[in-house]
Design a binder for these strands. Structure first.
Lengths: 244, 244
DNA sequence: CCAAAAGTGTTTCGTATACACCCATGT
DNA sequence: ACATGGGTGTATACGAAACACTTTTGG
């Protein structure tokens, strides 16, 4: 654990991943597995910030510690500032013991982040804190107000998925249209007509069909596609206008 | 100035208003007019939070102090946490003198808020700090990083205006369709065809035409309309689905 | 040859866009 | 009477939605 903490501010990360079928969220144990006080209690990856540290940097630090990845997509979506938010669970003593600080009130800044599950690798901390991917559709009970944070993070993701090209941050570099289709259905909890969905996607100039197919699947292998951020920006520039 | 402050967190409010033609923003003087150190420097309404105070409550407090209104619409849209954000202007000394606190690093939570200009009234503080409505299209230089906060607040408003019924919070209870039209044009910086705009609006079941017209205008008086939040919610419930 | 997922076209309907003139009021 | 903003209708084009079957591969 590095440096001297700022005991007034923390960050918590709602880390989303997609396994091809289901939306997942990364949770860790409250206690490292080599401590005696094994509680089985779960929480979001998060931490107090270090003095002078930028909040985004703190969130990146935590994400790298738990996934082994750099430059993960991160978006601040909320602030949880109830003065009693640490109280209801009597986990406050645990926090004080862990940090060695007298904790009065911690305002936490919540981020959601999107990772390609297939690229994430085990790290010292992810092992020590038994980090696992849980299904978003049945999130277990978490300490503090973390269940509410997850809920609001998911709502934010649903909203922003509709207006920004976030989906590609959850998919492998090369993906099939049906993976994309299932991703939208999983996150939004809706179903879309497959033909209409493919038509719509294929009209987009920034979705590039490759000359390459899946292999190792026991059915007709799908054509792979990739996302071009450059072409996305080109298109966005033209569309100055918008709605209403 | 009430209570003991928490010297780590502040809130700043980007307060928008609409005068029927132009989008406005509320700015105050850095110094009260009865102090000798009259600087003419401008800033956003904002303050350190009081110990134990919720951030929303702090923002409401500030807004009430400067507009005389209760229950103003407020939305948190950003966090400004650069450890040096107070430094570039050497206004830090001013802040320390004002609060009597040693200031190390202040993270500020930014809110935008929407007020009906016609309802706002002068208050002790708005007079003392010479609060004024400035045109959003030419915001003067502000202290600290407040110009950036304004910019991001305006971007957020532009985005959220498209998906949420915010416009009515800027208009009088009874408004004309052309006021609404000008409001959209002013905020988004676009122009819309008047006939198509009116057609679109008049299809919405939550925009209620009244049996009442403008008076005191030297041209054909416009029909007044009002917004029904209840009908808006009804409609929203039905539309579970959305896009893509 | 069977299972499993990939891939493909057409019709219908509603909404977006483009566009120019008359109306009611106060001065 | 005139200046000022309020108010109106139609035709075209595009995208959204609904809908069922054939194809390719591995086992």
């Amino acid at each position: 654990m590095p440096g001297n903490f700022n005991p007034h501010l923390s960050v918590d990360c709602v880390v989303f991943g997609f396994n091809g079928h289901e939306l997942k969220i990364l949770l860790i144990n409250r206690d490292a597995i080599n401590e005696q006080s094994q509680s089985g209690k779960l929480k979001l990856p998060g931490d107090l910030i270090i003095s002078g540290e930028m909040l985004n940097a703190a969130a990146q630090r935590i994400l790298t510690e738990f996934t082994g990845l750099q430059d993960i997509y991160l978006k601040q979506f909320g602030i949880f500032d109830d003065p009693d938010r640490l109280a209801p669970y009597s986990d406050l003593e645990w926090l004080e013991a862990r940090t060695g600080l007298k904790i009065e009130r911690v305002v936490t800044i919540a981020y959601y982040s999107l990772v390609k599950i297939d690229l994430s690798i085990p790290t010292d901390l992810s092992i020590a804190y038994n980090a696992r991917w849980y299904s978003c559709s049945s999130v277990p009970a978490l300490i503090f107000d973390h269940n509410r944070i997850v809920e609001e993070g998911l709502n934010t993701l649903k909203r922003e998925l509709l207006t920004e090209p976030l989906c590609f941050k959850l998919l492998p570099e090369k993906f099939t249209l049906n993976q994309l289709h299932r991703l939208y259905e999983a996150i939004l909890g809706l179903s879309f007509d497959n033909r209409n969905f493919r038509k719509k996607i294929q009209r987009l100039p920034y979705i590039i069909p490759l000359n390459e197919r899946q292999n190792g699947v026991s059915h007709k292998p799908a054509l792979l596609h990739t996302f071009s951020y450059e072409k996305y920006l080109d298109l966005k520039k033209e569309n100055t206008s918008f709605i209403l």
